[in-house]
């Protein structure tokens, strides 16, 4: 009876306790869920064939010195799109910002946030250590579409992008869309 009780207790603990490692690496999914809940929208992953039709990004090319060079480390890209849906915070853009920032607080550095309440345009870039490299999470929202991109960057790539934070989100988005190693 005692053994059974201990087993049940241990199993309960396993079931209750949050898998910390997984939670940390799954901030991407959490942010996607925050967008879905706040704006009442549903995401979709962009199929490879659709991505293949998208032209190469110019911002990435310009920032990497004229010739397009891949920014993200191979196999590190996660992308989720929201297409043809309404993103209207009804004046609550600050609440959404607070929600996203709170979700990632303590784990990710809020590097740059650009918000335009008039046209609901928002760009959030968060950074986090990933051993000798860096993970970058980019959330882009416009009136009818949005995307969440997570990539791992080499330190020199991040250093290059950091000089022009305004272009950083666009460059990473362009790169992720054109990256055929997507997970």
């Amino acid at each position: 009876m005692k053994r059974l009780l201990i087993t049940v207790l241990l199993l309960s603990l396993l079931w209750i306790s949050p898998p910390t490692g997984v939670a940390k690496s799954d901030d991407f999914s959490t942010v996607v869920k925050v967008i879905e809940d706040f704006y009442d929208v549903k995401h979709k992953s962009l199929p490879f064939l659709a991505r293949a039709g998208i032209k190469t990004g110019t911002a990435a090319a310009r920032l990497s010195g004229g010739v397009r060079k891949r920014l993200a480390e191979a196999g590190s890209v996660k992308v989720v799109f929201f297409e043809d849906q309404e993103f209207n915070s009804k004046g609550g853009i600050a609440n959404f910002r607070a929600r996203v920032t709170t979700t990632l607080a303590g784990k990710w550095l809020p590097f740059i946030q650009v918000l335009s309440a008039v046209d609901e345009a928002q760009t959030y870039i968060f950074l986090r250590d990933a051993g000798p490299k860096y993970m970058v999470l980019v959330v882009t929202i416009e009136k009818r579409e949005a995307s969440v991109v997570q990539v791992t960057l080499a330190p020199q790539t991040l250093a290059m992008l950091m000089q022009d934070p305004d272009e950083m989100g666009k460059a990473i988005n362009d790169d992720a869309i054109n990256n055929d190693d997507q997970e």
Binding site: I93, R97, P110, I112, Q113, V114, L115, S116, V118
Partner: peptide, 11 residues
Amino acid sequence: GAKASQTVDVN
């Protein structure tokens, strides 16, 4: 930020 037409926050 709630009243601004554009907000930029860099850290």
